[in-house]
Amino acid sequence: MGDAEKLVSFDELGRADLHVDAVYEGGRSGNAGDDPLPRLLRVSNMGGFRYRGTLAALEMVVLTSSMADANWPDEIDRETGVFTYYGDNKQPGRALHATPRNGNELLRRIFAAAHEGEAGRRTVPPIFVFGNTGQWRDVMFLGLAVPGTSEQQVAEDLVAVWRTADDMRFQNYRARFTILDVPLVERAWIEEVIAGDPHTPRAPQAWMEWVGKGRYRSLKSTRSIKHRTKVEQLPAGAEDLAIIREVQQFFEGRPHDFEKCAAAIARLMLPDITELDLTRPSRDGGRDAIGKLRLGHGIASILVDFALEAKCYALDNSVGVREMSRLISRLRHRQFGVLVTTSYVDLQAYREIKEDEHPIIVIAAADIVGLLRRHGHADPTAVRSWLEREFSAPSVEH
């Protein structure tokens, strides 16, 4: 989970405030009693969904995640304050809401209440989000959350998505929450929440603004200009490495056929692409595809041109300054570039595009794996099936 500025010991949990990005230490006995959350918030010691009260009258909800489930990739976007969380129907064999710990039913209820005006929002309990650190049972506090976001339509913040496992189809929820601009949650308010009275003068202002007005004041963290290292661009786990090798080997010796795949991957990252046309292999002028991205909605939207470059390289073969300069030189005024590679951009090339502020999106090997997983292609077998279904036909020059 990264380094934390603050560490709260196991003995201090019962009287501790909640600081965003602080780590709350679990016990070291090696059993379920090590879980810090029962001491910290007086909830149970099991599961990703924990709550006080009943489903019909929730008093507090605690969401926990390892952020490491590749099939169900919970994720926090610190730049926007949006937290994506998947429900608890993660295996086939049950209906969407028929989970043992009622996690999906809980999601259904709090999102429905959030859309019922102020009266409904007043029934939505405080939601505390934690991530496992990977060290014993220690957890990091990620923030105080509310259902939905200011950017998404009502029908988009809680969506039932389909997955396939063991040749069986089933559904699970994908929920989007907003982490509120509340860097500190005081213990005095936590005790009031536990007592069943969250709407007090001690309640965080951003939370009360959401309850009263439906305003989302998110906790945003501006990213500094940064070039990613090789390690950050390449997959880490064995299965992730197997996924990217499936892609690279599928197109081995057929680099121009990879361009169609790169275009599909770009659409996964930028779903508002409206046009994307492959150029002739012998006449691409430094661009494997040219396209248009829609900004805005409806008649008020505009189209922005971009150029795409695809590099199907082995993991140990980086994209260097020469290839990157080739793409940069072909960008016209008010265009941006997209580089899709099954490897990584070397340090010098990445540093130059960041420091010189070239408008180029780098979709490296690790990004490809993440995009494929988020769109249901979660293991090498599923990726191979997708590749064979979509890209087996030989490319046609045009």
Rank of each mutant, 00 (worst) to 15 (best):
S343V: 04
L372Y: 08
D316S: 12
S343W: 03
S329T: 09
R334F: 04
A349R: 02
Q335I: 04
A364R: 04
C312W: 02
S329I: 09
V319M: 06
R326A: 14
I328T: 06
A349D: 05
R334Q: 12
A365M: 03
V345W: 01
V369K: 05
V319C: 08
S318A: 15
R326V: 08
G320S: 12
F336A: 08
D316V: 06
V321Y: 14
T341Y: 07
E323S: 09
E357S: 13
A349C: 08
R351L: 09
V369F: 05
P359C: 13
A364K: 01
H333F: 09
V345S: 03
S343L: 05
L347C: 07
D346A: 08
D316F: 07
E352M: 14
D316Y: 05
I361E: 08
S343P: 03
E323I: 05
S325N: 15
R330L: 12
E352Q: 14
I368K: 06
Q348V: 14
R326S: 12
G370P: 00
Q335L: 09
K354M: 13
D356M: 15
S329K: 14
T341P: 04
I363V: 13
A364V: 02
D316N: 15
A310M: 06
V338I: 15
S325W: 12
V369T: 04
R330A: 15
L339H: 10
D356V: 07
R351I: 03
G320H: 11
L371R: 09
V319E: 06
A349M: 06
E352W: 08
V319K: 02
T342M: 14
V340R: 03
R326F: 07
H333L: 11
L339Q: 02
T341S: 15
A310K: 03
R326G: 13
I363C: 09
D316R: 11
V338F: 04
H333S: 11
E355M: 07
E355P: 00
D356S: 13
I353W: 00
V338R: 07
L339C: 10
E355G: 00
L339W: 07
D316K: 13
P359V: 10
Y350H: 13
N317P: 00
R334W: 01
L347D: 12
E323G: 04
S343C: 10
L372K: 05
I363M: 11
L339R: 10
E357R: 14
V321S: 14
E352P: 01
R322V: 13
E357K: 14
Q348L: 15
M324N: 06
V321W: 13
H358R: 14
E355Y: 03
H333M: 10
L372A: 07
L372P: 01
D346S: 02
G370A: 08
L372H: 04
V340Y: 04
A364W: 02
S329Y: 10
C312G: 08
D367L: 10
K311T: 02
K311W: 06
I353Y: 02
R334L: 12
V345D: 01
N317Q: 13
Y313R: 14
L315I: 13
Q335C: 03
R322T: 14
V340P: 03
S318L: 03
K354F: 06
G320I: 11
I328P: 00
S318I: 00
L315Y: 06
E355A: 09
I360S: 04
A310D: 01
I353R: 01
K311H: 01
